[in-house]
Every structure is written in C-alpha cells, then in structure tokens.
C-alpha cells in the first residue's frame, strides 16, 4: 500500500519539480529586490533625518504587524482596484519583496547602529563625505554584523513564499495541494513537500549559525 501510493506521488515529479523551481525563483528574486530596497531602508532608518526615519518606521510596522497572507491578498485585490493589474507571480514578487525589504531594513539599521560611534567620527575627521563614510567605513562593518541575519531572512522568505500558493501560484506547497486532491495521502504528500523545503532550508540555517559564530570570534 505504501509503495503503491509512493509510486503515484513520485509519478507527479514534474509538478513537484516545477513547484520547487517556483518556490526557489520567487524567494531568490524577492531576496534580491528586497535586499536592494531593504539596504536603502536601513540607511534611512539609521540616518540623521528623524522625520523620514519615523515615517519609514510606521510603514515598516504596518507590514511587520499584519499577516503575510493578508498582505498577499491586499496586493492581489487592492492594487487592481487602483488600476494596477498584476499576475499572480508579479503579485507574489511584489508582496514578498516588500516584506523582505521591511525586515532587511530593520536588520541593516540595527547593524549600522552597532558600529561604534568613534568609527564615524574618525571617518569624519579624515575628511570623508557622508557617502564615503557609509561606503568605506560604516557599511563594510555593518555588513559583517548583518550577514548571518540576512541568511536567516532568506530562510524566512522561502518559508513565507508558501503563503503565495493561496492566490493560486504553483509553488511547492500548491503542488502538494494539487497532488493530494488525486492521491489522498496527506502525510506522504506533504511529507514529500516538507522534505523539499527541509533540504533547502536546513543547510541555510546551519550556514547562518556558522556565520554567526565566526562573526563573534572575529569581534573578540
């Protein structure tokens, strides 16, 4: 019985593989876009302009304070009402990148604030412009502090991308959902799906931990 169903589930390997590809593509694309915006967010949040920083803080809180599922629905249903038609994939990328940007923004801001104040003062005293201070002194040090969290953030993105299946995007979770309609073996189907996620996320979690330990050694 087990082998009968296992064979049927494995017969769906093209769907599973396609779903896995979608999960990876969606998370990677959102990580890249989210990191680009997130770094800008972080610099503003840690920067001198208090009002700008506060306004951005409210924006970030709006997305940190609501479920990702609701955000996906908002992008998918509200933007069309404002005249912007998005495919499910585009909606997924927009929602996931935005979430990534909000979380990465806070991580980068914390990293920048963790760089000792004397570093900025020394850079200022050597006559660097604010852009040079950021590029040559502050950001390289902040980057070392935030790298483990960024890897951890990627794991969260991969897991959050499963929620996008709710608007019908064929990712790994949706693939499982489709297969379970014709092979009624929930444990085996979603065990397989879970294994797919595990094989990607588990090494990344370890990498994040290793980077964290190495970072602590470097700081001592």
């Amino acid at each position: 019985m087990f082998w009968f169903y296992a064979e049927r589930i494995l017969g769906y390997w093209p769907v599973l593989l396609k779903g896995l590809g979608m999960t990876l593509g969606l998370s990677l694309l959102s990580l890249l876009i989210g990191a680009a915006i997130g770094f800008a967010f972080g610099i503003i949040r840690a920067g001198g302009n208090r009002w700008l920083s506060r306004a951005l803080g409210i924006y970030i809180d709006l997305f940190r304070g609501t479920p990702f599922l609701v955000q996906v629905f908002i992008v998918f249903f509200i933007l069309p009402a404002a005249g912007i038609e998005l495919s499910a994939f585009a909606a997924g990328v927009v929602a996931l990148s935005n979430l990534a940007a909000c979380f990465i923004g806070e991580i980068v801001a914390a990293g920048l604030k963790a760089v000792p104040q004397g570093q900025r003062e020394a850079a200022l005293a050597s006559g660097m412009t604010p852009a040079q201070q950021m590029r040559l002194v502050l950001m390289p040090q902040a980057l070392r502090i935030v790298t483990p969290s960024l890897v951890g953030q990627f794991v969260l993105l991969i897991k959050d991308s499963s929620v996008v299946s709710a608007i019908g995007l064929l990712d790994l979770t949706r693939a499982g959902w489709m297969i379970v309609q014709s092979v009624p073996q929930g444990l085996m189907v979603f065990g397989t799906v879970g294994l797919g996620y595990f094989l990607i996320c588990y090494p990344l979690i370890h990498l994040s931990r290793r980077l964290e330990r190495r970072g602590q050694d470097a700081l001592l």
């Binding site: 897991k159 499963s162 929620v163 299946s165 979770t173």
Partner: peptide
C-alpha cells in the same frame, strides 16, 4: 524550523 507552517498545517 526548516519547513513552512502552511505545509505543516496541510500535513495535519
């Protein structure tokens, strides 16, 4: 920690 909640939910 290495799998999404939604997959865990559907699993159950």
């Amino acid at each position: 920690r290495a799998t999404p909640l939604l997959a865990q939910l559907y699993f159950l």
